[in-house]
Design a protein around this nucleic acid. Structure first.
Lengths: 207, 207
DNA sequence: TCGCCTGTTAACAGAGTTGTTAAACAAATC
DNA sequence: GATTTGTTTAACAACTCTGTTAACAGGCGA
């Protein structure tokens, strides 16, 4: 072996992840990934055979990450409303670290029937299984009369809507990679986080 | 002239609109648009010179439509909360007819610095001007003490989040073009519309 | 009728993209 | 020190995509 056995493979993966997420499958060129990884473009085909294989590897990892995280964020032992708040905030913080992820996954799902199938058949059922646990806790609280009667599915969609859309909007007004230290950006994020928690809690509290 | 003068241009535009919105700029092939329009692909270049010119024509039209509509939806003379409800519902109904539009615009904004500039400099200011009218009505209501103090910008983001994300989710579970008559899809849409109005109203009402 | 204009087509040029391969090369093993 | 194995490179083949062009068809005015 010459220099770095797995390093080449790793740097291709890292470069591919970044570029694919930013530009999507169709707009990404193999040469560009190779250049970013600092290797000859033949390396991509040596390690991953085709652009599609490389892409799918990243897509599947990221799609799973997105859903698993959503589930894990609600997995704690606190009182219901505290758990909810921490869940929303943790999910939001995950998006701060991965601001482009949701749009990336949605874009590629919508574009390819195969990927849609993959999500619906491979990722979704696993997530659903985990979500049921949280749903039970939620329903228990509902029976106790602590919350307004809302469908759990609607609750999840509401949280997802508010949290995800904050980062879609953020990408219009800010450069989510370079503006991490920008106080305006941080102010925007904090305001949104607080707003989202309030809206959701408000929608569940009995008037 | 041989066959149909302006019909060719129109059918190219119609085909391009559909395919660009579904696949985005990078994934769309000129040949595909030509085939869908039923013309030789040289026609695209005859009428529009380049793929980019054709795309920009559609993008600019759609981006303006998206924002103008958002503004127009809130433009009525009813009491505040009724106006708000009708505004949210009208915006939602617009998305029922254009379910892929938001994701299309966001995707292309994010991908191209030029398009982002176009949105921020050409489209946004016009929308903001119009939005100020609605903001004044909102602030008046706020001063009367009829609503909780919320930043108008946050309110807009909240409505946008909930309405837009409904159609992002819809595209995962349904085929938004073919499922128009599907009762499951209609049930989903009605539930979301009702949910979104409730959440927003709830977030503004004083407890 | 002739020439001109618009719209259309097929063929093609040029650039860029994915994917292949043969050869060089460096370290590990024998 | 020769062999093997894994890694890298340059060159290239095949293909696709965008954009051009030359030829052509029919309508229309001179």
């Amino acid at each position: 072996m010459e220099v770095n056995q797995t390093n080449t493979e790793q740097s291709i993966l890292a470069a591919a992840e970044q570029i694919f997420i930013q530009k999507g499958f169709a707009a990404t060129r193999c040469m560009e990934i190779a250049a970013a990884a600092g290797v000859n473009h033949a390396m991509l085909h040596y390690y991953f055979r085709t652009k599609e294989v490389l892409f799918n590897q990243i897509f599947e990892k990221k799609a799973a990450q997105l859903l698993n995280f959503f589930v894990k964020a609600f997995d704690s032992d606190l009182p219901f409303f505290e758990k909810l708040q921490i869940g929303i905030e943790t999910h939001f913080d995950f998006l701060v670290e991965n601001p482009r992820l949701p749009l990336f996954v949605f874009r590629e799902i919508i574009q390819s029937q195969e990927r849609k199938q993959f999500i619906l058949q491979q990722v979704f059922p696993i997530g659903m299984e985990l979500l049921k646990q949280i749903e039970r806790a939620f329903n228990k609280e509902e029976k106790k009369g602590g919350v307004r009667p809302v469908k759990f599915f609607d609750l999840l969609l509401n949280i997802g809507s508010l949290n995800v859309f904050a980062f879609v909007a953020a990408q219009i007004f800010f450069d989510v990679e370079k503006d991490r230290e920008n106080p305006e950006y941080q102010k925007f994020l904090n305001a949104r986080k607080k707003n989202n928690v309030e809206i959701i809690i408000n929608s569940l509290k009995i008037q």
